[in-house]
Design a protein around this nucleic acid. Structure first.
Lengths: 331, 331
DNA sequence: CTGTTAGCGCTTTCAC
DNA sequence: GTGAAAGCGCTAACAG
């Protein structure tokens, strides 16, 4: 079918080796030879075969970005897609390509973790079985964890300062003189959920604001659940003057519900979200929210992974990305 | 490093061949043998090496999703990300993995198109040089074009009924009794731009509505440009009663501008967008827009490509995905 | 600077 | 059902 290094050799008379070098380490070949080879290559439409190269080098220059099936579709997920973009950026800079894979892609009939695909290392996002991590490692595939934390030797985890971000959000509302602050938490992983919730209660306590149980809600993080929940909160006799939502989508559900009930935002109700997804500037008024630098998270994870692939060793480490309160029109 | 078929052979006593078969065509091996092999494999932590397999099979089961650098970041682009998701879905169904690549990933020092990566076929999105398509084909890498049209032998192009969608949008406004309809076009590829613009003028003409040149605008499709343009249109002495924007982001810029100028939507101004991106249900009131089934586009392109990879032949073909007007709160 | 030789780990005939 | 041998296209010593 397509031509090989052999065809080029036949045309220009040089050995396979020299031709190989002309492509992979051009500086080892004289300029004259190189040009002859390139010309011959063009003639027969030759291009190095990445598979064969990977085979002998034992390196594909690919990494995998693995997300739980439940969290699909990643690309459409306003939280994971910027992270993925960050990974892609680093990939481009450091000459790695990126596969997107779900956990299905890494199972064998025997139940083992199986790297069906050609990748040198993986970034695993969110929830996973610890056995999956171990499975990869058993096959010498380095792993970096993103948005989750596991306690394993030499494991690098990239996560977010959920606690600090939440504190800043709640204190911002308190500074505005608001004390009746409800929280709508999305059903995220226990780690994320607990950090954010604890920050909420701690901050209220710190400011001597009593916690009202009717102001505490946990829902599936969808628009419709958010609307339902907001409706309920806002029809409370003693309704909250602010709602802190643990992600932007929930916050937007709250805003829509309030606007449709003819409440003015922020005069009648303040709203704060979390993530600073690209939705936050679409809604009107625009959303005050806790920014996570998602691309940066992706970049950090990818750089760590490629560092490991380049032979660097790291101790067990948890990298906590900082957050920032972005004040817009809803507070 | 990681174990090979050889290590398994050593442990269980069977030949490489049998072990290979136990993994790639289990039915050719007796059940008893198979179990022994799986057990041995587990013991030494063996997993088939995808590279070696691809090498001999001359097939990677990977496809590439290639987008112009200018259109990066794909994953964050509300138009391309659902398309990508569609491709991913089909990939999962048909056992292909998907690479995201920019055009940078496919260049050689010699200037040739170079498939640096392991892929059996590619989907090319939006603008490209025709030479890129030809370059892939010269290397026996089948190509499917998405959201663009090229006139080449046996080339399958998946595109959208831009014309029909626009007609439906404009007629919807006319049915509401509105005649003062402005258009803000994004600077898209000539193909897309022309189809949509022609549909606008044709439809007005068909209904004997004179075209007002001050109602015709073309801008870069960004939020800020959209706001600027909307401000201008809305301050016209004889301002439009409706604005048709050729994508949702522009439409949202219009809505925000109007709301901030205390215009009521849709009472004072109707707005229609194009794409039905995930932004359209975030803004309040929610956006009336022309839906493109983007995931379906991705699915169609991926299925076509994999069909080709499976040996099917297709004539030159342009597949035009239908659109649908989604009426929400802005009209 | 260029060539020779020996594999990378697997699948695939072709025998048995 | 199972095994032996050959080879996929390339790179990496090692020579010259």
């Amino acid at each position: 079918m397509s031509s090989t290094i052999f065809d080029v050799a036949r045309v220009c008379g040089f050995s396979k080796t020299t031709i190989s070098r002309a492509f992979s380490s051009p500086e080892m070949v004289s300029e004259r030879t190189r040009n002859i080879i390139y010309k011959a290559a063009k003639e027969v439409n030759y291009t190095p075969n990445a598979i064969a190269r990977a085979m002998v080098r034992k390196k594909t220059n690919n990494i995998g970005f693995i997300v739980n099936d439940q969290q699909y579709p990643v690309v459409l997920n306003p939280f994971y897609s910027p992270i993925f973009e960050g990974v892609l950026q680093v990939g481009r800079e450091r000459e790695y390509s990126v596969f997107i894979a779900s956990e299905k892609d890494i199972q064998l009939p025997t139940g083992q973790v199986y790297v069906k695909k050609q990748m040198d290392g993986v970034i695993i996002c969110g929830k996973t079985e610890q056995s999956v991590i171990e499975g990869f490692r058993a096959q010498n595939i380095p792993v970096v964890i993103l948005n989750n934390v596991y306690d394993l030797e030499e494991l690098v985890c990239v996560t977010v300062d959920h606690y600090g971000g939440t504190v800043r959000a709640i204190e911002h509302l308190i500074e505005k003189g608001i004390e009746d602050i409800a929280i709508i938490s999305g059903h995220f992983s226990p780690y994320v959920y607990n950090e954010r919730f604890k920050a909420y209660t701690d901050t209220l306590a710190k400011h001597n604001i009593p916690l009202k149980s009717e102001f505490v809600k946990t829902i599936e993080p969808t628009m419709s659940e958010a609307k339902k929940c907001a409706t309920q909160l806002l029809s409370l006799e003693d309704r909250p003057k602010a709602i802190f939502a643990t992600n932007d989508l929930i916050a937007i559900g709250v805003i829509k519900t309030a606007l449709r009930a003819n409440l003015r935002i922020p005069e009648d109700l303040s709203v704060v979200g979390f993530d600073d997804s690209n939705f936050s500037e679409i809604i009107e008024p625009e959303l005050t929210t806790v920014r996570i630098d998602k691309e940066e998270m992706g970049r950090i994870a990818a750089n760590k992974l490629i560092d490991i692939l380049s032979g660097k060793k790291f101790e067990k480490e948890i990298i906590e990305c900082q957050t920032k309160l972005i004040v817009r029109g809803t507070t």
